[in-house]
C-alpha cells in the first residue's frame, strides 16, 4: 500500500525538504550542491523566503475582489448600479478606520474595479521585486554549468555566474511581466495564503535556511532522504516533503537549535499539563465511590453512620452523582 502511495505522481513524492542549509542562500547554489550527488536528476530547487508584505497585499486584493463581486451581484439583482460613500479622515486624503460613509458618494463597481487594478499592479510589482532578487532566481537546468563546491574558491566564480544569470533573467522578467507574474502567482500566492507569520512586515524576501528540491526520479528522492549530505552534523538535513497545501509555513526555516528547544519545551509542558490535569479529574473520579463520598461530604457520612443499611443504596447511587452533576451543568 505504501509503495503504491509513493509511486503516485504527486509533488510530495518527487521532492524533499532540506533544512539547516549550510551557508546556502540562493536557489542556484542549492541546485548545484545537489547536482554534485545527483547530476541531472535534480529538476529544480526552491529556497524558502518570507512574503509577509505580499501576503498582506494578496489579502487586500481578495477583499477588494469580494466587494466588486458583491457590487456586480447587486447590480444584476436590482438593475441599479450600487453606490457607496468613501471614507474621509480628519486629515484630508488620509482615511481613518472607523470613519466610514462620510465622504463623497461614488459608483461602487467603477470604484472597486479601479481599486482592483491598482491592487493587481501592487501584487505583480511585489512578485517581480521578489523574483528579481538574485538569491531567489532559478538556476537554468541545461547542464552546462560546471559542478561547484560550495566550500571551495570556485564558489566565487559561481556566484558571479548566478549574479549574471539573475541580471539576464531580471531583464526577461521586465519583458514578459504578465507571463512570469501569472506563473509566479501560483507559487508565491500559495505561500502567501498559507500564512507566513515568522517575519516582520518589512522583511519580504528574507531567505530562510530551508528549501525544497525536486528530483526527476523516485529513486533519487529516496537516496536523498537516506544520505548524509554534509560533514557537519544536522546540516543539509533532508526530510520527506509534505503536499504543498499541507505545509505548515510557520515552521519553515527553523534551525536545529530552535527545533530542539521547541521539542524540549513541548515535551516538558505536555508532561506538566498531564500531571496537573489529574488533580481535578481524580477529584471527580473519587466521588464515584461511597468511601470517597463519605470523606468528601460530611452529611452523607453522618447519615450512613446513623443508617448503615443505606450504604447499599449509596453504592448504586455514587457513580450517578457524577452523571447528575454533569447533567445539571449541561441543562444549566
Amino acid at each position: 500500500m505504501r509503495h503504491r502511495f509513493l509511486l503516485q505522481r504527486t509533488p510530495r513524492n518527487y521532492s524533499v525538504y532540506v533544512r539547516n542549509l549550510a551557508d546556502i542562500s540562493n536557489n542556484a547554489t542549492l541546485q548545484h550542491f545537489f547536482e554534485r550527488s545527483f547530476g541531472a536528476e535534480v529538476v529544480e530547487t526552491h529556497i524558502c523566503f518570507s512574503t509577509a508584505n505580499l501576503k498582506a497585499a494578496v489579502a487586500k486584493r481578495e477583499g477588494i475582489l469580494a466587494q466588486l463581486e458583491r457590487a456586480l451581484a447587486l447590480e444584476e439583482k436590482t438593475g441599479v448600479a450600487p453606490k457607496h460613500k468613501l471614507e474621509r479622515g480628519i486629515v484630508p486624503g488620509v482615511a481613518v478606520p472607523g470613519f466610514i460613509g462620510i465622504g463623497e458618494e461614488v459608483d461602487s463597481i467603477a470604484f472597486y474595479a479601479a481599486e482592483l487594478k491598482s491592487a493587481n499592479a501592487d501584487v505583480s510589482e511585489r512578485i517581480d521585486s521578489l523574483l528579481s532578487q538574485p538569491s531567489l532566481m532559478q538556476c537554468p537546468s541545461d547542464g552546462t554549468e560546471p559542478s561547484t563546491d560550495i566550500n571551495s574558491d570556485e564558489e566565487l566564480g559561481f556566484l558571479s555566474f548566478a549574479k549574471t544569470s539573475a541580471m539576464s533573467l531580471a531583464s526577461n522578467v521586465k519583458q514578459n511581466t504578465t507571463t512570469l507574474a501569472s506563473g509566479a502567482t501560483d507559487l508565491v500566492g500559495k505561500a502567501a495564503k498559507a500564512g507566513l507569520s515568522l517575519v516582520k512586515k518589512d522583511d519580504d524576501g528574507q531567505v530562510f535556511s530551508a528549501g525544497f528540491v525536486v528530483f526527476q526520479k523516485l529513486s533519487a528522492v529516496q537516496t536523498a532522504l537516506q544520505l548524509n549530505h554534509h560533514n557537519s552534523p544536522f546540516k543539509m538535513e533532508c526530510l520527506e516533503a509534505p503536499e504543498p497545501e499541507d505545509i505548515n509555513w510557520s515552521n519553515i526555516g527553523k534551525e536545529h537549535k530552535e527545533l530542539e528547544i521547541g521539542r524540549l519545551i513541548s515535551l516538558a509542558a505536555t508532561s506538566v499539563a498531564c500531571l496537573l490535569w489529574t488533580i481535578p479529574v481524580t477529584f471527580v473520579a473519587s466521588l464515584s465511590s461511597v468511601d470517597a463520598l463519605r470523606k468528601e461530604v460530611g452529611v452523607i457520612d453522618d447519615m450512613l453512620n446513623a443508617l448503615p443499611f443505606l450504604t447499599v443504596f449509596f453504592e448504586v447511587l455514587a457513580p450517578q452523582v457524577r452523571f447528575k452533576g454533569t447533567l445539571n451543568f449541561l441543562i444549566s
Binding site: D246, N248, S250, N251, R263, P280, T326
Partner: peptide
Amino acid sequence: LQFLVILNALLPVGLEILTKLEGAIS
C-alpha cells in the same frame, strides 16, 4: 464541572500550540 468541561475543551487547543513548537512542517 464547568471548570472541568472548559479545561477539556481547551485541551486540544493548548496541545496543538505545544505540538507546533516541535517544528513539524507537515
